[in-house]
Design a binder for these strands. Structure first.
Length: 714
DNA sequence: GTCAACGTCTCG
DNA sequence: CGAGACGTTGAC
């Protein structure tokens, strides 16, 4: 598609957004909040949008929360939504009404441009829900938070200079579930990015603000419509995301165009502006407010929000790098994005002058999902705090805060850490590529898919930046069944998010520095994972498997894991010790393992006994370079009554110097053995191997593929 | 009234 | 600080 086409697409998306159905508002009967709940007023609980991909999914039945549900045999105590169904854009309840006029939102009755003033907006700081039109304070401007539908920082709070944190009432949840490490990392990442983005972030808001603010009061002037220039095209940048508005309700999954802000120097491409901006306002429909910036933690910081751009350190590998980039960009776009400021805040000067941020924001609106919630329902904060940053794939994006802060100090934002998890898209991707003229490209998706199937992951990441449709297509699980991050030094939150989005069947994290929390977080969100390669990782990280569930895991590679010995194997293989009601599953979490790779570990027969006991389906076992493995170990594995005796088809004992010829006699008992690797076993002789072949020939024909490498012939 | 699950509290 | 528990809200 050419740029123009993309833009057109963008516009159409915006329009859609504008037209998207709004939640019905309840009647005035709805609960009313205390009129003065200003700062601490109780917040209305939000409810599912019922339209996002997450809401449309069925429960996975495998996540932690599903397992707690009575319907899945759990105790039902946790009362939490399935992880995969956590709403991306929770809406105000139907019963919500304006604290001023007592009426529900009326956005359905107006055109896009006017909707904003008549829709209910919840202040993320004081929690007040009002129609912007009902506010008396006209001078001040509110800052819309795109991350969450109908959310903003109301003019009063803005004017007061409150920061989200300060103001934030008790209602804002934090993503307490997220792995701290992830968060931290993200944070770090963000900060890096933010440093650069600080100004931007704020700006955005500003720009946005301007545009968004009540039309009447303020002129749309502020907003500068982004100029589209061919060059500007769509690469989604982080910031863009920020800016984008999210379409809250849209079903589209990924959107992708991102517009660039004009002024970013960073951008590779010249900044674009979208002409459409104005229309963006319409986006407001789901304005979100969030204390944007506030990362919550420090009020001050808000000001200088980091720019959206993230500069994260990229992993060494190209793929990881590409993945990261792709994630960032794409997701930005996708993600819903950014908050849009309604008006310009009184802000600080530091910030950049309002630029036409909005541009980006508009675009951004496309994806609702982005706003996914966090686990346990803490998504809000994320959104509020980092509206822009939150993206499905990448948690962190540094997004600018809504409000500009004075100091540029790097934001610490504690809250920034929170991150939103966006479930993989559930809606079917478009079958054809939309063209500028409204028609579609003749070549169907499946044909493109065949083409994409020949690309490397790195190339796919590049393709994902081309346009929204390609983004969607290139994210197809079929193209990412195996994600290889082997030896990628830095596993970033964005990468983790990207992995979740792609739901690979096989994941190679070998020789990475992944942390326990990251791995735990990841595993819990990859219920369909079949192959997990963790060789060379630390035991601390691998220990995440002790508490995480990966029911379909078939292949586990923990070779050369530092610190993994018998005691650790026990922790890994032992069933959960929690016998409280509801914790019914006391079977080994790795009971379905078929292929276990333990090369280079200091394990003894104690571990083998556990393996025999807990892995009844074990077919392939790699014990190479295990110095404690000896003939007795082989005897155990092949003893009468053990499941491994019949299930083992391949065993690797190469470089096990304590194994002798005697082990070969034990293997004769194995009914299914097809491959025995005894290479470099000093105490195994070629003669013994030949004798084994001769004796087995009665029933099974073996051959020596290499010296001391026995393989069944056939 | 029932069911789902949000958001906060509590405990380890 | 994170995970779990649970009161309560919101939808139907």
């Amino acid at each position: 598609m050419d740029v123009l086409t993309k833009f057109l697409l963008f516009f159409s998306l915006q329009q859609r957004e504008a037209n998207r159905p709004k939640p019905k508002m309840g009647t005035s009967a709805a609960v009313k909040l205390p009129s003065n709940r200003s700062a601490s007023g109780a917040r209305r609980r939000r409810t599912r949008c019922r339209k996002c991909e997450a809401c449309l999914r069925t429960e996975c039945g495998e996540c932690h929360f599903c397992k707690d549900m009575k319907k899945f045999g759990g105790p039902g105590r946790m009362k939490q939504s399935c992880i995969m169904r956590q709403c991306i854009a929770p809406v105000l309840p139907h019963t919500a009404v304006c604290v001023v006029c007592g009426e529900a939102g009326k956005e359905d009755t107006l055109e896009e441009e006017d909707k904003f003033n008549v829709m209910l907006m919840e202040c993320s700081i004081c929690n007040e829900i009002v129609h912007p039109n009902c506010l008396k304070v006209k001078d001040a401007s509110g800052v819309v938070n795109d991350e969450l539908p109908n959310c903003w920082e109301c003019p009063k709070c803005n004017y007061a200079g409150k920061t989200g944190k300060q103001k934030r009432g008790p209602g804002f949840k934090y993503a307490s579930n997220l792995p701290g490490s992830l968060l931290k990392e993200q944070k770090a990442v963000k900060e890096e990015g933010e440093a650069t983005s600080t100004s931007t972030a704020k700006r955005k808001p500003e720009g946005d603000d301007i545009s968004r603010h009540r039309p009447e009061e303020r002129e749309p002037l502020h907003r500068h419509p982004p100029v589209l220039t061919p060059s500007t095209l769509p690469r989604p940048r982080p910031e863009d995301k920020l800016r984008k508005k999210r379409k809250l309700f849209d079903d589209d999954e990924e959107e992708d165009f991102s517009v660039r802000k004009k002024g970013k120097a960073d951008e590779p491409l010249p900044p674009l502006k979208t002409p459409v901006l104005d229309s963006d306002q319409s986006h407001c429909s789901s304005p979100q407010a969030g204390p944007s910036s506030e990362g919550g933690s420090e009020p001050q910081e808000k000001g200088p929000r980091p720019k959206a751009r993230r500069k994260r350190r990229l992993p060494n590998k190209e793929l990881s790098k590409a993945l990261n980039q792709e994630i960032q960009k794409t997701e930005d776009c996708l993600a819903n994005e950014n908050r849009q400021p309604l008006k310009v805040e009184p802000e600080s000067e530091n910030e950049e002058p309002k630029r036409g941020f909005r541009i980006g924001s508009d675009l951004g609106g496309e994806r609702p999902h982005l706003r996914t919630k966090e686990m346990n329902g803490t998504p809000w904060e994320l959104r509020h705090f980092y509206p822009s940053q939150i993206t499905p794939l990448g948690f962190n994006r540094s997004s600018p805060g809504t409000r500009p802060l004075p100091p540029r100090s790097p934001p610490k934002c504690v809250q920034m850490e929170r991150h939103v998890i966006r479930p993989p898209p559930i809606s079917p991707p478009p079958d054809r590529l939309p063209l500028v003229d409204g028609k579609t490209h003749a070549v169907q998706r499946e044909v493109w898919m065949k083409l994409f199937g020949h690309f490397t992951h790195k190339e796919l990441c590049v393709c994902m930046r081309v346009c929204k449709t390609w983004n969607r297509w290139c994210c197809d699980k079929r193209l990412w069944t195996n994600i290889d991050l082997n030896r990628c030094k830095s596993i970033t939150p964005l990468m983790l998010s990207g992995i979740i989005r792609r739901q690979p069947l096989s994941l190679d994290l070998s020789w990475t520095n992944i942390s326990k929390k990251q791995l735990s977080w990841l595993i819990n969100r990859l219920p369909g994972l079949r192959v997990l390669l963790l060789s060379g990782c630390s035991w601390v990280a691998v220990s995440a498997l002790c508490t995480s569930s990966c029911p379909l895991l078939r292949t586990l590679d923990v070779q050369w894991v530092e610190g993994l010995k018998d005691a650790q194997m026990r922790d890994l293989l032992s069933p959960p010790t929690d016998n409280r009601p509801g914790q019914l599953d006391n079977r080994c979490k790795l009971r379905n393992i078929l292929d276990l790779r333990l090369a280079g570990l200091d394990i003894t027969d104690a571990s083998l006994r556990l393996i025999i006991r807990h892995m009844p389906l074990l077919s392939r076992l790699d014990l190479s370079y295990c110095n404690h493995i000896n003939d007795h170990s082989v005897n155990l594995l092949t003893a009468a009554g053990t499941t491994t005796r019949d299930s083992l088809t391949e065993i690797n004992l190469s470089v096990c110097n304590r194994v002798t010829d005697h082990s070969l006699t034990f293997f004769k008992r194995c009914g299914s053995i097809c491959h025995i690797d005894l290479r470099y076993c000093k105490q195994v002789t070629k003669m013994a191997c030949e004798q084994f072949i001769a004796e087995m020939s009665v029933s099974v024909q073996f051959g020596l593929k290499e010296d001391k490498l026995l393989q069944k012939l056939s």
